[in-house]
């Protein structure tokens, strides 16, 4: 039983980070219908920026976390401004390919830094002794990670519900033509969506860095696992991203916990999301909460 609960705990922790990174992905898709393949690289650069600020420049972790979020905010915004703004109205394949090219460019830039090949880990800033509830141990970083994720998601949903800009973004996601006609600046909304996505990606990256250490390959793989999550939740649903993130985290941990080592299986946690993805695409392509676009011919 405690083994089960332990898996649940680690599943929720991983899942909440999935939720956070999927959130950024969905933000971009929802507002501008761009499938951002380079999301994993943005996650990674957010994590690396935070790390270099805190370790190489000696800024306290909390402050550098905030600074990292800001830097990635503007980084993602400029990515949108430089690369994607020109492609508004171009066929969908060009847009996807540009994000693939972007992925390559960011890869190259990261390989120029030591982060491309070496492993780093954040200095511990929380007590390292884990908390133990009923035989289940939870580390402080995990706890803070989940709390931060919840806070970020809560903050973003408040932003969408209350602020003028948030409401404008929802309006654009709903109907671009109508929102243009009432004077909402679409490019501004796209830029902001990218910036917010970059920010949440950076937060996710920094959290992964704190929990498992920084390794470019891991962050890379993490970025691709976001796809199954968003498909499970529905490409355009923020609630879906959160729920599916946690479901995917749980499934991964259960697969790793119960399947690996039995029947000669190994690293099932890595492949499970993609199997689920294929099944979902075949049977419920719009995910759990995605809008079902009905198209009659």
């Amino acid at each position: 039983m405690s083994y089960f609960l332990q898996l649940v705990v680690s599943g929720v922790v991983v899942g909440s980070i999935y939720a956070l990174s999927a959130l950024g992905f969905v933000l971009i898709y929802k507002s501008s219908r761009v499938l951002n393949i380079a999301h994993g690289q943005i996650i990674a650069s957010g994590a690396f920026i935070t790390y270099s600020l805190t370790v190489w420049m000696g800024i306290p972790l909390v402050l550098s976390f905030a600074l990292g979020l800001c830097v990635t905010f503007f980084l993602a915004m400029s990515v949108e401004r430089i690369f994607l703004r020109r492609l508004i109205g171009e066929p969908i394949i060009s847009v996807i390919m540009v994000t693939i090219g972007l992925m390559s460019i960011l890869d190259g830039i990261i390989y120029l830094t030591p982060f491309g090949t070496e492993n780093f880990s954040f200095p511990p800033f929380l007590p390292t002794t884990p908390l133990v509830f009923a035989g289940v141990s939870v580390s402080w970083t995990q706890l803070v990670g989940v709390a931060l994720t919840a806070a970020m998601i809560g903050g973003l949903s408040m932003f969408f519900r209350r602020s003028t800009m948030g409401i404008a973004m929802r309006a654009v996601a709903d109907d671009q033509m109508a929102s243009m006609s009432i004077g909402i600046s679409i490019p501004k909304v796209f830029g902001l969506a990218w910036a917010l996505a970059g920010m949440s990606a950076a937060a996710a990256g920094a959290l992964i860095g704190n929990i498992t250490g920084l390794n470019f390959d891991t962050l890379h793989a993490f970025g691709i696992t976001v796809f199954p999550v968003v498909i499970l939740g529905g490409l355009d649903s923020i609630l879906g991203a959160v729920v599916a993130g946690i479901i995917m985290g749980l499934i991964q941990q259960f697969a790793a916990g119960y399947l690996d080592g039995n029947w000669g299986l190994s690293s099932t946690g890595e492949i499970m999301p993609y199997l689920i993805l294929l099944v979902i695409l075949l049977f419920k392509p719009h995910g759990l909460f995605g809008i079902h676009e009905i198209e009659r011919v």
Binding site: M97, I100, G101, S104, I105, D107, G108, Y111
Partner: peptide, 10 residues
């Protein structure tokens, strides 16, 4: 390699 490759695509 990835840098030039990505630039070429973009």
């Amino acid at each position: 390699k990835p840098l030039s490759f990505g630039l070429v695509i973009v």
